[in-house]
Every structure is written in structure tokens, then in C-alpha cells.
């Protein structure tokens, strides 16, 4: 079994600035140690996929990064600043730079697609001109290929469309880091591939760094620059998709057997 590594030295993003730095992070819920000792970094412009069984704490980890959950101890720096000590103002500024795509999309079901996309813009008061806002909404919807859905309610959209609108809502603030919580879960293989390609397209167009939580090996193969396997509260393996797939370690290669 590959030991946990703290230094990354096997990818092309090594020279980029470190945007997320996590060291010895711990989090427990009611005495259950979900995250025991997490160490990882994410470089600028890099897509990192985290694999792991359900309920192992992958979502907890990315929720810690945006301050939705506070870790019990450990280092957690985003853009060089410690998240845990940030006040609400600093946290709000951070959250405009870090996008989060929820597993269930979390679209506001009382609002139309347009209002869903307007919401983060108006809340952050970066742009107030309605024409500019409209232009941004149309632009971001063109990127996800759903301009026609602008006046629809979330209940009128399919699973894949909701996922795309969720991505569009995150992209509208032009985040520098995007956290995807199981972006292809519950989608058919074709739509999953479309979403995976969209993640890749976003990486190329917006030059954003990403952490992608996934069970979907096809998604991991398409989107990842580097992969980590979370097991029993620590990162047990690390490498590119091919490195891990061709690993001599039986435990690691077992993750790729269904492919």
C-alpha cells in the first residue's frame, strides 16, 4: 500500500502557485473520526480528483475548504490564508473566489434559472448594471449550452440540465477554484461524459483549479491531472490516473477493476 505523501512531484503543475494547502487536518462527528490526518495541496490551474467510498468524508473535506464545516485541528490554507481564523467578511470574499458545485445542484427552486444566476451577482454587488448582468448570464449559459432554459424553473429541468445550471451559477462569479461534489452522480453515461468534458472545458477556459469528488472513473479519467484516494480518514494513494490504474498495489488497482 502506498504511504501518504505530503509532497507532490509527479505532475506538470508543480511550478504553479499552491492555491489550497491542507496539513494534518482532522474532523470528527460525535466521536467518529471522519478525517484523521489529511495532507494535500492543489496547484494553480490543476484538476485534482479525490476518489473514495461513500460516507468516507470526501464532501466534508471540501466543505471545510469553503468554511461550511470547521475542522477540529490542522492546517487549512486557501490562497495562502488560514480559513479557520477568517471573519465572516473575509470568508465572504474567499467564497467569491471559490465556487462550489453541490451534489444535488442546490438550485433555488423558488427562482427561475435567470434569478438563480443573478442571485450571486447581486448579492456580491460587484455588478449592478442590469444590461451587464444579462450579458453575463447569457454568456455563462452559452458556455454550458443552455441559453434556451433561461426563463425555466428548476423543476422543469432534467438532471443533467440542473447540473449544468449549477455549474453556470458557480462560473458566473469567475471563481479561481471550483469544488465539484460528485458532479456525475445520478446521470446517465452520456450526460456524465458531457459534464466531464464541461469540467475540462472550464479548466481550459477559466484557468481555474478544481477539486473533483467522484466515484465515476470515466469522469476521473477525463478530468484529472492528479488523483488522490481517501481511505479511513487519510489520503492513502496519489498519482495520475494511469499511474494508479497500473499500480502494482492490489488495493489501489482494485479501485479500477470495473473500468
Amino acid at each position: 500500500m502506498i504511504e501518504q505523501k505530503e509532497n507532490i512531484n509527479n505532475n506538470s503543475f508543480n511550478n504553479g502557485e499552491v492555491v489550497i494547502e491542507i496539513g494534518h487536518l482532522k474532523k470528527s462527528f460525535n466521536g467518529n473520526n471522519v478525517l484523521k490526518d489529511i495532507n494535500m495541496i492543489v496547484n494553480e490551474g490543476e484538476n485534482v480528483v479525490i476518489l473514495g467510498k461513500s460516507g468516507i468524508g470526501k464532501s466534508v473535506l471540501i466543505k471545510c475548504i469553503v468554511g461550511l464545516i470547521y475542522p477540529d485541528s490542522g492546517l487549512l490554507k486557501v490562497f495562502g490564508k488560514e480559513v479557520v481564523v477568517m471573519n465572516s467578511r473575509e470568508l465572504n470574499i474567499l467564497r467569491t473566489r471559490v465556487g462550489f458545485i453541490f451534489q444535488g445542484n442546490a438550485l433555488y427552486d423558488s427562482m427561475t434559472v435567470r434569478e438563480n444566476l443573478e442571485f450571486p451577482l447581486r448579492r456580491n454587488k460587484t455588478i449592478t448594471d442590469p444590461h451587464v448582468i444579462e450579458g453575463l448570464i447569457v454568456d455563462v449559459l452559452e458556455n454550458v449550452g443552455l441559453v434556451d432554459a433561461i426563463d425555466k424553473m428548476p423543476s422543469e429541468l432534467s438532471g443533467g440540465m440542473k447540473k449544468r445550471i449549477g455549474v453556470a451559477r458557480t462560473l458566473i462569479l469567475k471563481p479561481e477554484i471550483i469544488l465539484y461534489d460528485e458532479p456525475t452522480t445520478g446521470l446517465d453515461p452520456l450526460t456524465s461524459r458531457e459534464i466531464s468534458n464541461l469540467i475540462l472545458k472550464i479548466q481550459n477556459k477559466y484557468k481555474a483549479s478544481s477539486i473533483i469528488i467522484s466515484h465515476d472513473l470515466n469522469c476521473a479519467k477525463i478530468t484529472s491531472n492528479r488523483m488522490l484516494i481517501l481511505h479511513e480518514g487519510i489520503m492513502r494513494a496519489e498519482g495520475t490516473f494511469d499511474e494508479l490504474k497500473n499500480s502494482n498495489d492490489e488495493w489501489i488497482s482494485s479501485y479500477f477493476k470495473i473500468d
Binding site: K63, V66, L68, S88, N92, I93, R95, T96, V98, G99, F100, F102, Q103, G104, A106, L107, Y108, D109, F119, P120, R123, N124, R169, L173
Partner: peptide
């Protein structure tokens, strides 16, 4: 339950 409150929080809204 549908994480809309969390989504609101991460979009910088209290």
C-alpha cells in the same frame, strides 16, 4: 435538505 442554504452561504449571502 437540498443544500440550498449551504449554496446561499457559499455564494456570499448570510
Amino acid at each position: 435538505v437540498t443544500e440550498q442554504i449551504d449554496a446561499m452561504e457559499v455564494s456570499g449571502t448570510n
